[in-house]
């Protein structure tokens, strides 16, 4: 049993050391806690990077907590952070209702809360820094429709489209679906487009591939594909290519629209395989969130008086830029998504 003793000691030592390094933060500068819903997604990695960049620039320390898409885990993390007395909390909530109680706890402890990318429905937030998924999805769907019409005008209607949705019940999935439908519904009702499949692919690339393979077994007559994120679009693109179905405007093929402007998707847009992807600005969300929190704590910034209200939740809303990446602007998009525009004041 020597072995187990040694293993145990090594493990304990590792644990203690890792906790030690996390705990060592400069006490004088503001200590910001960023709670992301999951780090298991490039989008939130970029957000964390934006937050870190701002923390470095404005002389604060930042700790990133991974909520693992689990409201109870995130609740516990926020509670722990309140106990540890962070200067400010940046919350990218897993769930817009479940996190309300803990926001109220932070309010009671006098720690300012900023919601980032996803707001909560109650408690005091200084402001909500993010984009409206519904509006962004509407912009994506409009670009999709335009490309569809430009490519398929010679083909008799109805044009047949496939919609791939995100994880059922997730707020981003629900709101993006709403945005898509807002734009597409009139055309569906008028018989210009026909939805031949409306399925979930769980925001996942492998699932996107599988679902598209299954759809392709029923028909190859597909004119358009609009997806609630890029991962699914890229998986489906792979299935289409594998089956020898032409894609892109140049080939008079399937018009594919994604969402999130992931690097792989932007490359696919440049290659002409996808017509576009909606770029939100996670970097700016993280950057602005941290900048606002630091300056708010230091008393050098407060929410501008003319700030609009985000209707779904009633928070003061500082919108971050949205752009649809297409072949025309794909080269300049990194400057937009990694830019550091000034925080509105």
């Amino acid at each position: 049993m020597k072995f187990s003793l040694v293993t145990g000691l090594v493990l304990m030592l590792g644990l203690v050391m890792s906790i030690g390094t996390i705990g060592m933060a400069d006490q004088a500068s503001p200590r910001i806690a960023l709670f992301v819903s999951t780090i298991n997604n490039p989008y939130f990695v970029t957000m964390a990077n934006g937050a870190k960049a701002a923390a470095e620039e404005f002389g604060a320390s930042i700790t990133v907590f991974d909520g693992q898409n689990d409201a109870s885990i995130q609740t516990k993390q926020v509670e722990d952070a309140i106990a540890k007395g962070y200067s400010a909390i940046l919350l990218n909530s897993v769930d817009q209702s479940a996190l309300v109680p803990v926001v109220k706890e932070a309010n009671a402890a006098g720690i300012p809360v900023f919601s980032v990318d996803r707001d909560v429905k109650g408690g005091q937030r200084v402001c909500y820094i993010g984009t409206s998924n519904v509006l962004a999805a509407e912009q994506g769907a409009a670009t999709f429709l335009r490309a569809l019409a430009l490519t398929k005008f010679a083909k008799p209607t109805p044009w047949k489209i496939v919609i791939l949705e995100g994880i059922p019940g997730a707020s981003a999935a629900v709101e993006r679906e709403e945005g898509f439908k807002n734009v597409l519904k009139p055309f569906i009702d008028a018989g210009v487009i026909k939805v031949i499949a409306d399925q979930t692919a769980q925001f996942d690339r492998a699932t996107g591939l599988k679902v598209m393979e299954d759809i392709l077994a029923t028909t190859k007559d597909i004119d358009g594909l609009i997806c609630a994120n890029d991962e699914m679009a890229l998986g489906a693109l792979r299935a289409l290519k594998e089956a020898g179905v032409p894609v892109g405007m140049a080939n008079n093929g399937v018009i594919i629209m994604g969402f999130d402007a992931e690097a792989d998707a932007v490359a696919a847009v440049k290659a002409g395989d996808m017509v576009g992807t909606v770029a939100q600005a996670p970097f700016i969300q993280g950057y602005w969130g941290t900048e606002a929190a630091v300056k708010y704590v230091q008393g050098t910034w407060t929410v501008p008086a003319d700030t609009q209200v985000y209707k779904p939740t009633g928070a003061k809303f500082i919108p971050t830029p949205v752009a649809v990446v297409t072949a025309e602007n794909a080269d300049t998009i990194t400057t937009l998504t990694l830019a550091k525009p000034p925080l509105p004041r």
């Binding site: 997604n41 690339r205 492998a206 591939l209 792979r238």
Partner: peptide
């Protein structure tokens, strides 16, 4: 095998 099928390795693969 998943790498080959997707022509990419995604960190969320296989959940």
């Amino acid at each position: 095998m998943m790498d080959a099928r997707l022509d990419s390795a995604t960190p969320t693969a296989g959940q």
